[in-house]
């Protein structure tokens, strides 16, 4: 009797400790973001005179957001990022799905080699090779063009390839065979039979690739140099290092604006993000 009680008491204490850990972690995770939110709503005067810990007088003071939006040319930035996202997502998903289809459905010499080439490529951090990629881009006259940057971002992505390969593995080949017996070509099999079935994998890939494209800074900064024309969201944020470098009420507003799409995607598609992450890692 006493043993049982002690056991359950231990369980309760254990759970309390668990929750203390969780709350501390969630708090530290949120604190930097929350401090950003409170600051973003403060007027210049308030920002200069009050401590960070004091909430703003008026939670509906959107003045800083307006200033940040205009200073960083964010209208343009969001438009450009949107255009880039459409092309990159469409292209990347088609290319990865096609590649995964070939690698999964056909056995030919070089199949394993191609997989290895993509895996090795995934080990090379993008920034490392930019010294020479820059030369290649400039000899192809692709610097300061949207299509150049899009082409660069279309490039390979081992995670999406794996997500698609995994998905193909779960689609029975009898599906392909039946279609071929009915006179369908391989192209038909891919575009008409398999591609529509890939929808969940496509959503997962689109979110993961979308977020990474949205957040990509280094190459956007390097290859889209004319900031008045080719500003994207991540590079627009970086303009805050200039004259406004210590006006954190504007900077925080800017950071929050760029975070809104990410928050929405996260709330709506959490499940797909977790699935994509775990799937991408299982095979790596």
């Amino acid at each position: 009797m006493t043993k049982i009680r002690r056991f359950s008491l231990g369980k309760i204490v254990g759970q309390m400790v668990q929750y203390i850990f969780l709350i501390i972690a969630a708090f530290s995770s949120l604190l930097p973001i929350v401090s950003c939110i409170t600051t973003a709503f403060k007027s210049d005067e308030e920002y200069n005179s009050t401590s960070v810990m004091i909430p703003p007088e008026n939670w509906l003071n959107f003045e800083n957001f307006k200033v940040a939006w205009n200073e960083a040319n964010m209208g343009r930035a969001f438009l450009n990022t949107f255009i880039i996202l459409i092309f990159v997502l469409f292209g990347n998903i088609m290319l990865s799905a096609m590649l995964a289809y070939i690698l999964n459905r056909f056995k030919f010499k070089g199949n394993a080699l191609i997989r290895d080439l993509f895996i090795i490529a995934s080990l090379i951090p993008g920034i490392a090779t930019q010294v020479t990629v820059y030369q290649i881009m400039s000899s192809l006259h692709l610097i300061n063009t949207m299509h150049g940057y899009i082409l660069l971002m279309l490039g390979t992505d081992v995670i999406s390839i794996y997500i698609f390969i995994q998905f193909f593995e779960n689609l029975p080949t009898s599906l392909d065979e039946a279609a071929i017996l009915d006179g369908c070509s391989y192209f038909g099999v891919f575009f008409r039979i398999l591609l529509p079935l890939l929808k969940p994998a496509i959503v997962t890939c689109a979110i993961i690739k979308g977020v990474s494209t949205y957040n990509e800074y280094y190459m956007a900064n390097l290859y889209l140099q004319d900031k008045s024309l080719y500003q994207v969201v991540s590079t627009s944020l970086y303009t805050f290092t200039g004259p406004m470098g210590s006006q954190y009420n504007y900077i925080c507003a800017g950071v929050l604006i760029t975070m809104i799409p990410i928050v929405l995607i996260f709330i709506l598609c959490q499940k797909y993000i977790y699935i994509g992450l775990t799937q991408g890692a299982v095979k790596e």
Binding site: C36, Y217, S234, L237, V255, M259, I273
Partner: peptide, 19 residues
């Protein structure tokens, strides 16, 4: 809550922590 920071753009993370 614990995963969300991974989705934020590196530049934003930089500014958040600079502040």
């Amino acid at each position: 809550m614990l995963y969300f920071p991974s989705l934020i753009c590196g530049i934003s993370v930089g500014f958040i922590f600079k502040y």
